[in-house]
């Protein structure tokens, strides 16, 4: 059985992350936020969309940094 190296774990996370991101940004999930409610005067769904978007970018940054590090540690 292959060992679960950090690189392997990160690879799997990197593969699954876009799918989770997609699920968060499509109905029915995004529909939950499409209401009249506002945050500091801004429509809730607008805030939700841009917040998730920014979070995905952050995750991409962390993942790529970790993957880059893991590749260097695990030269294969």
């Amino acid at each position: 059985m292959a060992k679960l190296t950090p690189l392997r774990r990160l690879k799997d996370i990197a593969a699954i992350a876009p799918i989770f991101g997609f699920l968060l940004l499509i109905p029915p999930v995004i529909g939950l936020f499409a209401t009249e409610a506002t945050v500091f005067g801004a429509p809730l769904v607008l805030v939700y969309l841009f917040a998730i978007w920014l979070a995905l970018i952050l995750i991409a940054a962390i993942l790529s940094q970790r993957l880059s590090q893991a590749e260097r540690d695990d030269p294969k």
Binding site: A17, P18, G21, F22, A60, L63
Partner: peptide, 20 residues
């Protein structure tokens, strides 16, 4: 309204999954 954002969310997701 917000529909324009979809055109940029798709690429964001693809680049998030760049490793595969």
């Amino acid at each position: 309204g917000l529909e324009f954002a979809t055109i940029y969310i798709g690429p964001t997701l693809v680049f998030l999954g760049f490793y595969s």
